[in-house]
Write a protein that binds this DNA or RNA. Structure first.
Lengths: 251, 251
DNA sequence: CTTGATAATGCACGATATTGCATACTAAGC
DNA sequence: GCTTAGTATGCAATATCGTGCATTATCAAG
């Protein structure tokens, strides 16, 4: 990637998120933190951003405020997505589910990562256009508009030739006895099918999903090999899971 | 290869990818990096691109950007898209192509229209989420990032069960002798397959596409039953078409 | 066909840019 | 205070660049 491009990407990300963090940028672009710091220093001297310890903020404080307010609601989701994005390694084939957390995860995938992403979410497909080295396989089917994902027989049929390493699953409920659940029957079928075509399933469980159950059960909690939850999660849910052999990661 | 050709190819690649890298160009064209650097320097002095360390970027940073392409020349495109949108009637099954004009057409489809839209463009799928009465069938496959559409064997396979009434086709070239053409081989295959699965094909030809030919031919002009062009179109192209039985609509 | 002019190309070489690492310094949290 | 994480600086390795020059290709006029 060209240096110039990296700098404008940094500015774009800054405008989008209201902040950038040196360490994360370094991982995203696959360069050392020194290089990122140099970039930030130069952009700062051009007045394009404001340098702070650990990263940078937009040059105009007003913009920062707005972006910050907007981002504060999704801090947890971003953290979970970030942890998930870091789990993807070079050459893997991963399945990304629909849902806002998965979209955020797609956004956070390193720009230099060479992988194949299989998804049934058109939003994620569009998002990944910005990642030139990622091959995207879109699963077609009938569009379920509430979640903006494809479902149905055609979608499940399209999966038949896919073998993925990891499936990152979004859910609407993670409950000790009700297991993993979602609010639509077709979606539940789809998620089961996706899990069946991946060697491993990782569940992304943002705060509001924990200890909740939706109408349609996907499977019990052990369907997941790993569940990523936010830091402050109640141990009464996670302890039994850990005991059952499911890895718990706090983001 | 002629120097002139190489230069225009560099510009084309720049527009397509949003960046070019000296080393890669050197390998692509089989010339030394010095020669490429000279080309880039000259193109830069003509203001056709912006030179940076390691390669070059578009002269105007946003030119290569899809979002920008979407906004440019939007008046004509909107008019054409509007005419096309009005052609869709209640209960029809229509295929919408990728491309900016088709996205605009999707946006202009009446909110209360009850139809089925088949598309291989994730952007259009996302756009139609706002149309509750339209059933959307998304054709999956390998994502071709330049045009943001799915292509390949999987996509063509997914079409096999589809029978549509009308296919609204976007093209990059409409030429009297070269027929309908597009800039990517896979896309050309896809467009042929889509046309084969619709009873009728309507071509959306915004001004810059007329009397132009791209590398890959989709079919001759009579593949289309109707071509929608902008008002000021030269009759030298449209008259022979009309004579051949193709309906011409001015938008 | 030959010749001379012009353009295009590749190579050599010194200059500049970029990057990562080591080291010493500074800010932030406890 | 003290520890940790982040930072700046110098430096060396590498990549890229610009220039001058020799070689080759192209082409028009003789």
């Amino acid at each position: 990637m060209l240096t110039r491009q990296r700098k404008s990407e940094i500015l774009a990300q800054l405008q989008r998120d209201g902040q950038v963090i040196s360490k994360e940028l370094s991982e995203t672009f696959g360069v050392s933190e020194d290089t990122i710091r140099r970039d930030l220093r130069e952009l700062s001297s051009e007045g394009l951003l404001q340098r702070v310890h650990g990263g940078a903020l937009p040059a105009s404080p007003a913009v920062a405020d707005f972006a910050h307010r907007q981002s504060i609601e999704s801090v947890t989701k971003r953290a979970i997505a970030g942890v998930a994005a870091k789990m993807v390694t070079h050459g893997q084939v991963v399945i990304l589910d629909g849902g806002t957390t998965a979209v955020e995860m797609a956004r956070q995938l390193p720009k230099e990562l060479v992988t194949t992403v299989v998804t049934h979410s058109p939003s994620i497909a569009v998002e990944l256009v910005g990642h030139p080295k990622i091959e995207v396989i879109l699963i077609g089917g009938k569009l379920f508009k509430h979640s903006i994902v494809t479902v149905g027989a055609a979608a499940i049929e399209a999966l038949s030739h896919i073998r993925a390493d990891v499936y990152f699953m979004g859910v609407t409920g993670v409950h000790a006895s009700a297991g993993l659940s979602t609010g639509d029957l077709e979606e539940a079928y789809m998620k089961r099918a996706l899990a069946a075509h991946a060697a491993e399933t990782v569940v992304l469980a943002s705060s509001d999903k924990l200890n909740a159950a939706s109408q349609y059960m996907i499977g019990d909690l052990t369907l997941a090999s790993t569940i990523i939850v936010e830091k402050s999660t109640d141990v009464s849910l996670t302890n039994p899971l850990a005991a059952a052999g499911v890895t718990i990661i706090s983001a």
